[in-house]
Computed example of a mutant assay.
Amino acid sequence: MTPQLTDKYMVTIAERLTSAYARIANAANNAKRSSNEITLLAVSKTKPSDDIIAAYEHGQRQFGESYVQEAVDKIAQLHTFSDIIWHFIGPIQSNKSALVAANFDWVQSVDRVKIAKRLNTQRPADKAPLNVLIQVNISAEEAKSGCSIEQIPELAEFIDHSEQLTLRGLMAIPAKSDNPNEQTQSFEQLQTCFDKLKAQYPHIDTLSMGMSNDVEAAINTGSTMVRIGTDIFGTRT
């Protein structure tokens, strides 16, 4: 039985979600785009199930998690909320790939053929194919996950030919910068990669880029999915 959430608690999450959606709408308007083109992924990693329920009660359905065991536990706790769409957005270790394949609807962090192969093999046959985004290390940071731009074609071809995977697009986490021009440059580079990939795979539809600190720049550059955590759920401990 889920503990009863207080009205004050619910309002806090609801207000933050309302603000996040208003921010997306404003950014879309400034970019002369429809806000309907942009999905808000509420990043709930490190946050308790009650936070997710509070967001769910305000209409949010798509949630992002980065830590496999924590996420699997929450998915089990919230199994009655059958219309939640779960995205895995963190690095994937080989020994955890089976859990990711079995529990998530989307994986946004596939960056090598080895992991794609494991996810395809380990995806349960009774589930729909796993929606996959290729994570690109667009800023070429040594400590960050993601494939290089040059590796995208090979990885995309493997995913597209995998029976239990569906190629949906690209994801990136550019290097942090307070310089709007640097933010835009990284996003434009990823958008170019996306456009090139879409010319070969017309069915892809998702460009996941932009977080709390750069939503406007991302939407202005073609993002179709923004990942917002702190601005909805508060600072992580």
Results as ranks from 00 to 15, higher is better:
Met1Trp: 07
Met1Asp: 08
Thr2His: 15
Leu5Asn: 08
Thr6Lys: 10
Val11Ser: 15
Ile13Val: 15
Ile13Ser: 13
Ala14Asn: 14
Glu15Lys: 12
Arg16Ser: 13
Ser19Met: 04
Ala20Ile: 05
Arg23Phe: 05
Ile24Gln: 06
Ala27Pro: 01
Ala28Tyr: 01
Asn29Glu: 04
Asn30Arg: 06
Arg33Thr: 01
Arg33Leu: 00
Ser35Gln: 09
Ser35Met: 04
Ser35Lys: 12
Thr39Ser: 15
Ala42Trp: 14
Ser44Trp: 12
Lys45Leu: 09
Lys45Gln: 09
Lys45Asn: 10
Lys47Gln: 15
Pro48Phe: 11
Ile53Cys: 14
Ala54Tyr: 11
Glu57Met: 13
Glu57His: 14
Gln60Ala: 10
Phe63Lys: 13
Tyr67Cys: 00
Glu70Val: 05
Ala71Met: 11
Asp73Cys: 08
Lys74Gln: 04
Ala76Glu: 12
His79Tyr: 03
His79Trp: 00
Phe81Gly: 03
Ser82His: 15
Asp83Trp: 10
Asp83Val: 06
Ile85Pro: 03
Trp86Phe: 11
His87Ala: 02
Pro91Leu: 01
Ile92Asn: 09
Ser94Gly: 04
Lys96Phe: 08
Ala98Thr: 12
Ala98Asp: 12
Leu99Phe: 12
Leu99Thr: 01
Val100Cys: 08
Ala102Pro: 02
Phe104Asn: 11
Asp105Tyr: 12
Val107Arg: 04
Ser109Tyr: 04
Ser109Gly: 03
Arg112Cys: 14
Arg112His: 14
Val113Cys: 07
Lys114Val: 08
Lys114Met: 06
Ile115Glu: 06
Leu119Trp: 11
Asn120Leu: 03
Thr121Phe: 01
Ala125Cys: 00
Lys127Leu: 15
Pro129Gly: 07
Asn131Tyr: 05
Val132Ala: 12
Gln135Ala: 10
Asn137Ile: 04
Ile138Val: 07
Ser139Tyr: 07
Ser139Pro: 04
Ala143Lys: 14
Lys144Ile: 02
Gly146Pro: 06
Ser148Glu: 04
Ile149Trp: 06
Pro153Ile: 02
Ala156Gln: 06
Phe158Ile: 01
Ile159Glu: 01
Glu163Thr: 09
Gln164Ala: 12
Arg168Asp: 02
Leu170Gly: 02
Ala175Trp: 00
Lys176Asp: 00
Ser177His: 04
Asp178Val: 00
Asp178Leu: 03
Asp178Arg: 05
Asn179Leu: 03
Gln185Leu: 11
Ser186Ala: 13
Gln191Gly: 05
Cys193Phe: 07
Asp195Asn: 14
Lys196Asn: 15
Gln200Glu: 14
Asp205Arg: 05
Thr206His: 04
Leu207Pro: 08
Met211Trp: 03
Asn213Asp: 06
Asn213Lys: 02
Asp214Cys: 05
Asp214Leu: 03
Ala217Ser: 04
Ala218Lys: 07
Gly222Asp: 05
Ser223Ile: 08
Ser223Val: 06
Ser223Arg: 10
Ile228Gly: 02
Gly229Thr: 02
Gly229Val: 01
Thr235Glu: 13
Arg236Glu: 05
